[in-house]
């Protein structure tokens, strides 16, 4: 799967949980999921579970802890799906 395709799917999964529509409109790999998109920490659990479902992967909490930006999430998923 191309990185751009992963990025698009990641943004689509994040979208219902985003509190800052302005940040979503300008979303990029550098966009911070908590600080910019204002996704709260409980919702981040849901996001991770949806990543697991959408990409058929398992993501443990140690991996999640390293994800700060949308780009971090894309890279993590890319590494998991090989």
């Amino acid at each position: 799967m191309e990185k751009s395709e992963i990025f698009e799917k990641v943004v689509k999964i994040l979208t219902p949980y985003v509190k800052s529509q302005e940040a979503l409109e300008g979303v990029s790999p550098e966009t911070h999921i908590l600080d910019d998109l204002k996704v709260n920490s409980a919702r981040l659990v849901d996001v991770v579970l949806e990543f697991e479902d959408a990409f058929d992967i398992e993501i443990d909490d140690d991996d999640v802890d390293k994800v700060e930006t949308v780009g971090n999430a894309v890279e993590l998923i890319e590494a998991k799906i090989g």
Binding site: N40, R43, V45, D46, L49
Partner: peptide, 16 residues
């Protein structure tokens, strides 16, 4: 609304 019973993923409670 995001605190409602069904707002969380079905595996949320098991994960957390």
């Amino acid at each position: 609304p995001e605190s409602s019973r069904d707002a969380c993923h079905s595996r949320f409670d098991r994960r957390v």
